[in-house]
């Protein structure tokens, strides 16, 4: 896209401000800091010891299987439930009453007032905040224009999630919490919701979301904290996590591709369902080696590691477990 500027001062000002945003983000203090959170439900320890922080404009994903403590951690950060131990700071200070005016929450399980239309629901919540968002803008952003007269209980899963997202954004929040926003949605609705979340992100809002979908985490998140059994076991950007814990790739070939004794291969390998899976550290070198060994590569597929592989590497189990 080409931007036209009136004069060089405006251009320099724009460049300076963009530089400032990038530079500032790297050096700024976290908008939310969570330290050593612990939550007990009677004898069950839902969250054992969770610490993380998130800087303004960043999308942080809490990734983990069901029961990992993601939602409990999120609700403690949202000030919906109180931790048994630990500290939560918003902009460097304990949260005050104004915290609710500055955050938006989309819960995983929630319900709305019965017998109200989408429009009435939006208007009701609009009146609850001091400085609410322009409703028309919100309706447009969350694609609710055609649903305004429809009752809440007549919405499909994807439509309801878009309404819930609109309610989370109704107060122009600086910090948005999304608890498994796409769970239960069909692929099209999910993709649609992701696009809306990306647009919110582009506006510079800070997002914390929980998910057990590594695809969602990779698509939306700048940083991912992997949780298991009430703890954060790894925390970095998705790319860095993959690089740190799962280097290389897996080449998958049919058994018929090999005319040599497999033990002669300079890689570790395993056999599964008539296929040979090779674990390759350096993709380029691996390819050259296979070509030199006269392996038929026509039926080969390549699996590059993802966050699920990182999770398996760290915990020994799958995200779906």
């Amino acid at each position: 896209m080409i931007h036209w500027y009136k004069d060089k001062d405006v251009l320099f000002s724009s460049v300076r401000s963009k530089y400032f945003i990038i530079h500032h983000r790297e050096n700024m203090d976290p908008i939310l800091e969570v330290s050593h959170l612990r939550k007990l439900y009677r004898q069950t320890e839902a969250v054992a010891d969770v610490s993380f922080s998130v800087k303004e404009g960043v999308c942080l994903g809490l990734l983990g299987p069901n029961g990992a403590g993601k939602t409990t951690t999120m609700e403690m950060a949202e000030d919906i439930i109180q931790p048994n131990e630990g500290e939560i700071l918003y902009q460097g200070h304990p949260r005050t009453n104004s915290f609710r005016e500055e955050i938006g929450i989309q819960f995983q399980h929630t319900s709305l007032l019965n017998f109200l239309s989408v429009e009435e629901t939006l208007q009701t919540f609009h009146k609850l905040f001091r400085e609410p968002e322009d409703l028309n803008l919100l309706i447009q952003r969350c694609e609710l224009g055609s649903l305004l007269k429809r009752r809440n209980d007549k919405l499909s899963g994807g439509q309801l999630q878009r309404l819930m997202l609109a309610l989370a954004l109704i107060n122009k929040p600086r910090l948005v919490f999304l608890d498994e926003p796409s769970t239960g949605l069909d692929p099209q609705s999910r993709r649609n919701l992701w696009e809306i979340v990306l647009r919110i992100k582009e506006e510079g809002k800070t997002i914390i979301l929980t998910t057990h979908s590594m695809e969602e985490a990779e698509y939306l998140c700048d940083e991912v904290a992997i949780m298991d059994q009430g703890r954060v076991i790894a925390w970095d950007s998705p790319k860095q996590l993959i690089q740190t814990y799962c280097q290389g790739a897996a080449f998958i070939l049919p058994e018929s591709a090999f005319r040599l004794d497999l033990d002669r291969l300079p890689f570790s390998w395993k056999q599964k369902d008539g296929q040979i899976i090779l674990e390759i550290t350096q993709i380029h070198e691996g390819l050259n080696t296979l070509l030199n060994l006269d392996v038929d590569l026509s039926g080969m597929s390549v699996h590059t590691p993802n966050l699920e592989d990182v999770f398996i590497h760290l915990t020994g189990k799958q995200l779906r477990d």
Partner: peptide
């Protein structure tokens, strides 16, 4: 009923 189905929780997320 509102507490059980989460309506109150949704309202708690506001300054109400």
């Amino acid at each position: 009923r509102y507490r059980k189905n989460g309506t109150l929780k949704r309202l708690k997320a506001t300054p109400l």
